[in-house]
């Protein structure tokens, strides 16, 4: 690891200025991804600006009925928060399905959103990877790609986004509050992460030096009936092969409104707009659920090792929708 300076920031504007003016500076959250990457030699920052002591450590109700989550709130505190458990169970469940108790006590909301892919070729220095070293090629496309994307990938990169939390936030239509050198802006969660295209080294649409300060959840009554389902190789402590975050409002056997997002399938958490469009206003039957899943999967392009993800997504969507429909 290369030597670096460390600063514990107590002012957000100063933290942003410090990172913005040095290309090789990084914000430090819980460190569970960044410190790992520094040990692996994937990044060699010269300055770490610790943002965990900034006053962004609260979960507060908003006047419009939504909730503001500070970027420094730990994943464990967020999952345990009564407001989140009551009104957005999909978010608590997604957080609780991720990592381990010890990691969730460190991991922050901001850091979780900006964590990088677990593609094994990205995480070692010795294999070509366009994300780590633009232009070097993608080892996964012709290599081991069981964990990789089936939707929205490119010839340059087929990696998936690893966060569970972000899948729930995508279903909920959260907005991300960002502070940059030029001031504040608000980024819809669907525009925070990108598809790989020709620039897989760009995970997000954040500019260097832009700090996530909070994530806002909209008031969303249907989120009270929501669930997160994660399919993985072990029963616990493993990343998703496939996951689904779903909130649904069913009245008299008809889907009045629905939110669906998928994890483990793309370079970003995947909002299933096509499935949603087919479900809205349709009878809440298994045939409809299946047709909605098929509509979303119509353009799926599985790789050599991950064809199983297509039926896995279909079965996951159908079974979670069926369960939520039963609870109505």
């Amino acid at each position: 690891m290369k030597p670096f300076e460390y600063v514990r920031a107590d002012d957000a504007t100063q933290a942003v200025a410090m990172v913005a003016e040095r290309p090789n500076a990084r914000f430090l959250g819980g460190g569970t991804n960044l410190v790992d990457h520094m040990k692996l030699g994937l990044v060699e920052p010269e300055l770490l600006v610790d943002v965990t002591a900034l006053p962004f450590n609260r979960v507060e109700p908003l006047p419009d009925g939504g909730v503001r989550i500070g970027a420094a709130v730990r994943n464990s505190d967020l999952a345990a928060n009564p407001l989140v458990r009551q009104n957005y169970p999909v978010l608590a469940a997604a957080l609780l399905s991720g990592a381990s108790g010890q990691l969730r006590n460190l991991a922050t909301t901001g850091g979780n959103l900006v964590q990088r892919t677990r593609c094994p070729y990205f995480q070692t220095l010795y294999t070509p990877c366009n994300k780590r070293e633009p232009g070097s090629g993608c080892s996964a496309i012709t290599g081991h790609n069981r964990e990789h994307a089936i939707l929205g990938a490119s010839q340059a990169c087929v990696a998936t986004h690893p966060s569970d939390m972000a899948v729930a936030l995508t279903a909920l239509g959260a907005t991300v509050r960002v502070l940059g050198p030029a001031g504040e802006r608000v980024v819809p969660i669907g525009e925070l992460n990108r598809l790989p295209g020709d620039e897989p080294h760009q995970d997000t649409t954040l500019n260097h030096g832009e700090l996530i300060t909070a994530v806002d959840l909209p008031a969303l009554p249907l989120a009270k009936r929501s669930a997160y389902y994660k399919v993985r190789d072990r029963a616990s402590y493993a990343f998703a092969q496939v996951s689904a975050a779903i909130a649904v409002d069913i009245h008299s056997g008809v889907v009045r409104d629905v939110r669906v997002a998928l994890g483990g399938v793309a370079h970003k958490p995947w909002r299933a707009h096509r499935a949603e469009a087919l479900l809205r206003g349709a009878p809440a039957t298994e045939d409809v659920f299946r047709a909605a899943a098929d509509a979303e999967l119509a353009e799926a392009k599985p790789l050599s090792d991950n064809g199983f993800k297509v039926p896995m997504v279909r079965n996951t969507l159908v079974s979670v929708l069926r369960r939520l429909a039963r609870e109505h």
Partner: peptide, 12 residues
Amino acid sequence: RRVVSCLALAVA
């Protein structure tokens, strides 16, 4: 609180 100490920096 329980944490893994291998990913926490001493200076932090």
